[in-house]
Amino acid sequence: MKKILISACMLGDNVRYDGGHHLIKHPVLQRWQQEGRLVPICPEIAGGMSTPRPPAETQCKFPILVTTKEGDDVTPEFLIGAEKTLEIAQRERVACALMKAKSPSCGNKRIYDGNFSGNLIDGAGIAAAELMRNGIPVFSEKELPELFAFIEDSERMSA
């Protein structure tokens, strides 16, 4: 039975920067949670940030720079959170991850451009990129059918 790393906000934990959550009520995810297959993580909380916290966006990829809207450098917290996320994923031997789209930590394909204007650019959040660099596929809530197919295929192959 494959495990899936999941952004804690998607399970209803109030860990988002604004103190809220992004609960996803889907029967497959609810079943996986009951089966103990979901491994929750909030990389930003794991990196030592509080809830609520100022919004943050990636300013630069090389070298990595993540700042709040006020200009405070929160790169160390994001990097620590990414490292801890990878450690948990490897320890739990997750097959993949389901992470929050557009997040500076969890976004898998598009993130905000760093101007705090709502514009998106191609790229991954710090934790999602770390997982993918280490061979762990990352899906967003916009890719649930792909996630379900991936798990079904991987379980069929390992049966």
Rank of each mutant, 00 (worst) to 15 (best):
L65Y: 01
R133K: 15
L79A: 00
G12P: 14
P137F: 02
A89M: 04
A46R: 11
M1H: 09
Y17L: 10
K25W: 01
V138F: 03
A82L: 10
Q34S: 15
M99W: 04
E57A: 10
E155Y: 01
G114L: 01
S7F: 05
A127H: 01
E143Y: 11
R53W: 11
T85P: 01
E83H: 04
C60H: 04
I41Y: 10
D73H: 09
K109R: 15
R16M: 12
G81E: 08
A82S: 13
T68K: 08
R37L: 15
I88Q: 03
M1P: 09
H26V: 13
S154P: 00
L131N: 04
M157P: 02
H21V: 07
E130D: 00
F62T: 12
P54L: 10
K84H: 14
C106A: 03
P55V: 12
H21M: 05
I24K: 05
E152C: 08
D113M: 03
N119F: 10
V138S: 02
E83T: 03
Q34F: 05
L65S: 01
I24T: 09
S103E: 09
F62E: 11
L98W: 02
A124K: 03
N108D: 12
P63I: 05
A149W: 03
A89H: 05
G71S: 02
C96A: 15
A8W: 11
P54T: 02
P63G: 03
T85N: 00
Q59M: 10
G107M: 08
Y112L: 06
H26G: 11
E77N: 12
R93Y: 00
G12M: 13
P54V: 01
W32C: 09
A149E: 14
R91E: 10
D153K: 15
Y17P: 14
N108Q: 13
Q33L: 13
